[in-house]
Amino acid sequence: MHATARFLDRLSFGIDRLLRAIALVGLVLMVAFISLQVVARYGFSAPPAWTEEAARYAMVWVGLLGAAISYRAGFDPKLVKLPATLPRPLLALAALLRGAAVVIFLGPILFFCFFGPGLNPERSFLARNLYTTAESFDMPTIFVAVTVPIFIIAIFLHGLAHCARGLATLRTPRPERDFNALDHA
């Protein structure tokens, strides 16, 4: 149990680091594309047509990977914050329900990334995006679509690692920041 938990913990940590690095690059690219658009409009005679679409795709990457990063950090806004003084079984039940919400929400989305009508993988979301191309440059949209399963798998792994950590009591779960949830408006 401990070994599994430790392995999952390190995997979750490593994935988080990787996703952060990719998302940072995505964000920098967003700034670069958008700024290029301004420079090009007032500088060159024919501004490139692809900057806006490229910036949007970078945003999809940033946004979805960011969702996985935010999930792991416990950063998402919540309606109710349970006091840590509740009896342990109740807290465990709450954690179970929270996990169920994540799986129920993202499970079907992940499933239909890989399967299409009639459970046919060749007509799945990912496969469909092999055949559609971006509007202003020659790139299959699969390079954008692939973020959807990536962020969901990452969230599932983070959740699993969190559970394993709780069960193995490898260490006490990370204390969540008190007011983080409302740091959004």
């Binding site: 969702a67 999930y71 998402d76 806004p77 919540k78 309606l79 109710v80 914050k81 349970l82 039940l93 709450a94 954690a95 329900l97 929270r98 169920a100 919400a101 994540v102 129920i104 929400f105 993202l106 499970g107 079907p108 949830a181």
Partner: peptide, 19 residues
């Protein structure tokens, strides 16, 4: 119960919608 469990709004709304 899920709402009271401290689920993040996004996952609560998403999960509830799938239900």
């Amino acid at each position: 119960a899920t709402l009271l469990s401290g689920s993040a709004i996004a996952y609560f709304v998403g999960g509830a919608t799938i239900v």
